[in-house]
């Protein structure tokens, strides 16, 4: 066990955990931030996507010991009032079915738009290909990203 100071959603959190613990489980079990989801544990489904200094990363593959002072953002911290353009677009298109993967989808989409405000269809597909939606909301996700891109 070791002590870590983590910058999550703009706040510093003290965490006492095994250094190998993936950030996913630190968020969920230690910080009670359960918006970041467990899906596969091997970075294949994207349900656990968070931002590390604004870049989309799979938190299931990110040991707590590797984060240091870098800034983590989770779905809970993406916006203060749930009004990030991507979140608004998701509501406008009523994207979710079961909804379980959508936090990860939104984190991937918002990181994409931060880096590339006007992505083409192919760029969207490429950036989002690591996020599985078992319900098959892919066409709506793409439409919502375009709406957010235009806002």
């Amino acid at each position: 066990m070791a002590q870590f100071q983590l910058n999550v959603n703009g706040e510093i959190h003290e965490v006492n955990a095994d250094p190998t613990t993936p950030i996913l489980w630190v968020l969920r079990d230690h910080l009670n931030l359960v918006g970041t989801k467990y899906g596969c544990g091997i970075a294949q489904c994207g349900a656990c996507t968070v931002h590390l200094n604004g870049i989309a990363v799979r938190s299931c593959q990110l040991p707590v010991s590797s984060v240091g002072t870098n800034k983590l953002t989770t779905i809970e911290g993406l916006s203060e009032k749930g009004d990030h353009p991507v979140q608004k677009a998701w509501i406008a298109h009523d994207v979710p079915q079961c909804g379980y993967c959508q936090a990860g989808q939104i984190m991937s989409a918002s990181a994409l738009l931060e880096a590339n405000p006007n992505p083409t269809d192919e760029e969207i597909e490429s950036a989002m290909n690591g996020n599985i939606c078992r319900c098959g909301t892919y066409t709506r996700i793409k439409a919502a990203i375009k709406t957010a891109s235009n806002s």
Partner: peptide
């Protein structure tokens, strides 16, 4: 008439909704 998913806002803001998100005092894994 089309009505939005009543859980939509909670889903896109990552609020606890799912079984895996549930917790209680003294809960073990």
């Amino acid at each position: 008439t089309s009505r939005k998913n009543v859980d939509g806002t909670k889903i896109v803001t990552g609020q606890p909704l799912y079984g895996l998100d549930y917790s209680a005092d003294n809960m073990l894994i």
